[in-house]
Structures are given as C-alpha cells and as structure tokens.
Simulated assay, not measured.
Amino acid sequence: MSCPVTIELSGGAELLFDNKKKLEVVLPENSNPWTIKTMLPWVRDNLLKERPELFMQGETVRPGILVLVNDADWELMGELDYSLQPNDRIVFISTLHGG
C-alpha cells in the first residue's frame, strides 16, 4: 500500500535536498509495510540531491542527525523498525555544523 508522509529537514540537512525544508511525498506501493528502515534508501535514491554520505551511513542516518516521528524522538518509536502510518511527519535535523 502507498503511504503519504511529510518529510521536514533543518539544521543544514535541507542543503542536501535542494534547499527544500518540507517535502510532501507518497511512498509507492510496497509488498511490506513501510518502515523507516525501508524509507531511508528510498529517500536517498529519490529525493536526495547531493552527498548521500552526509545523510546516511550504512542502513541508517548518519550520527549527528536527529530524527523525529510526529514530534517524538525516533528512539522512543523503535527507530528503524517504526512502521510508518499515513500522514506521519518525519523530521531530520542535522546537529553537525562546519566551522
């Protein structure tokens, strides 16, 4: 089943996504329910515009990127195993800043 979600980016993460701070996306039909683990490579392959190594490391987000699901820390929601629900809001906030 397809799954509409809102992805928000801040703290510099938006620079990797063509300076877009908010993306309304519909994750395509999938034989299994969408989880954050399955969403991340889809986001990398379909939305990320540059430097994927600054967004993902292995199968997860890079250290220094805070992830919120509907305003709650994703660690409270099961991290990569969280099953996305229609109209969820996923926020990626980069806490790493160059200097």
Rank of each mutant, 00 (worst) to 15 (best):
M1G: 15
P4A: 01
V5K: 03
V5I: 15
T6Y: 09
T6F: 08
E8G: 03
E8F: 06
G11I: 07
G11Y: 04
A13G: 02
A13L: 10
E14P: 00
L15H: 12
L16M: 08
L16A: 05
D18I: 06
D18N: 13
D18S: 13
K21R: 09
L23Y: 10
V26D: 12
L27K: 05
P28T: 00
E29P: 13
P33I: 07
W34N: 05
T35E: 05
K37D: 10
T38V: 02
M39R: 03
M39F: 08
M39G: 03
M39H: 05
P41D: 01
V43F: 04
V43P: 03
R44K: 15
D45I: 04
D45R: 02
N46E: 13
L47D: 15
E53I: 10
Q57C: 07
G58V: 07
V61Y: 00
R62V: 06
G64S: 08
I65V: 11
V67S: 06
L68W: 08
V69R: 01
N70F: 00
A72T: 14
W74T: 06
M77Q: 15
G78R: 02
E79V: 11
E79S: 15
E79D: 13
Y82R: 05
S83F: 09
D88S: 07
R89M: 11
I90N: 01
I90V: 13
F92S: 07
F92A: 06
I93W: 01
S94G: 06
L96F: 12
H97L: 11
G99W: 11
